[in-house]
Design a protein around this nucleic acid. Sequence first.
DNA 1: TGTTACCTGTGAAATATTTCACCATTCTAA
DNA 2: TTAGAATGGTGAAATATTTCACAGGTAACA
Lengths: 217, 217
Amino acid sequence: MALIAPDKENQIPDIVIGRLPVYLRALAYMHQQGKRTTSSSELGRRLGISSAQIRKDLSHFGEFGKQGTGYHVQHLVKELRLILKLDKIWPVAVIGAGFLGHALASYNGFEERGFQIRWIFDTDPTQIGKVINDIPIQSMNELEKTIELETIKIALLAVPAIHAQSVTDRLVDAGVEGILNYAPINLVVPDHVNVGYSDPVVQLQHMTYYINPNEKF
Amino acid sequence: MALIAPDKENQIPDIVIGRLPVYLRALAYMHQQGKRTTSSSELGRRLGISSAQIRKDLSHFGEFGKQGTGYHVQHLVKELRLILKLDKIWPVAVIGAGFLGHALASYNGFEERGFQIRWIFDTDPTQIGKVINDIPIQSMNELEKTIELETIKIALLAVPAIHAQSVTDRLVDAGVEGILNYAPINLVVPDHVNVGYSDPVVQLQHMTYYINPNEKF
DNA sequence: TGTTACCTGTGAAATATTTCACCATTCTAA
DNA sequence: TTAGAATGGTGAAATATTTCACAGGTAACA
């Protein structure tokens, strides 16, 4: 008599989810270039990934290709956007209006890929009220109130490392569920909150392992 | 008679290398806080990683801890810096002097972690000659000449996506071996060149898979 | 000194991920 | 109509990565 797993884990590996946005980016680019169809091998060549991996990844979500032909680019773009819940625009808050917060708020590449920066917060009284890319900088005093009122789910965290954890705690308490952290520090958050990290130094230090420095320095 | 592998692969997994900078960052932080010793379990708790993984990772490079006691923070920091070749400062070039290039060049957190921004390049004639954080913006016409003369090995790529691949080709031809790419596009490079990617949208799209949008938008 | 609570480093086991290899299908062109 | 080349989906096999679990070793303290 076989024992049946009561709650068969059938969830898709996170590592697979993490590749989907990369596929989407490449496919959207192809679409923009006027390309109608592509194949797992062509996509793999562009991304430096094996074709089998791409097919296997996509197979978790359905059958999107056609044997002999490949994938219809526009269709696959549409499907990936649905899977990643990008059929609506996600409103996003930027926390911190330093150089980096300014650069993020000024970047116009978010919207066509599913996001819109709608709020900017800072503590500096001399910054508050200034406008970046049509968005007025708000006081951090209004953080919780605004997050709850607007049900903001995603924030870009561009504050000094020393304040990153305390601001994170405030964001989480107010209901934020996704944080992209630019401060060079690890954040502690509850399980239901997703954190992404962007620390250029971490990435550079990863590279230096493989590079031989020259004698000059 | 045993067949002996002629070229036994004994290299350390890249995924392990990728975690070392994160360990280093946390340890340097502890050191700054005045902490003398730590343990794999404490470090793991902070980073959301199992203690076994940390011990296993470090074991690839030697024995740095002491049973019953744990790790001497300052010592482990020193060892990790050696492993990652951070005992000297790596000079770095920023390509592109837009908002992002400006933010990168203005950031003062590089130096204490092993890097120094020393050059900034842009095509815009009205930008050339301007100074950011003591560094004058140079013309892209001087790119190859400067890279070769100074033997620049690492570059931060902050140019529009449309130019990213062609600039990359120039960097690689001139001798750059590590590129941190901020443009939302995949780069094709030879095997010996290391590329890191930083695209906030890719990270946000990864998160949205796990977050339920609210009804408001 | 004896006892207890902690630690590391590490083989072995358990999982997770990637790759292989092949069938069925599609398209092209002779 | 048929042959040949290309392609997706997918179990099975191969690899890679993580976790387990325990033999020492250390420190603190009664």
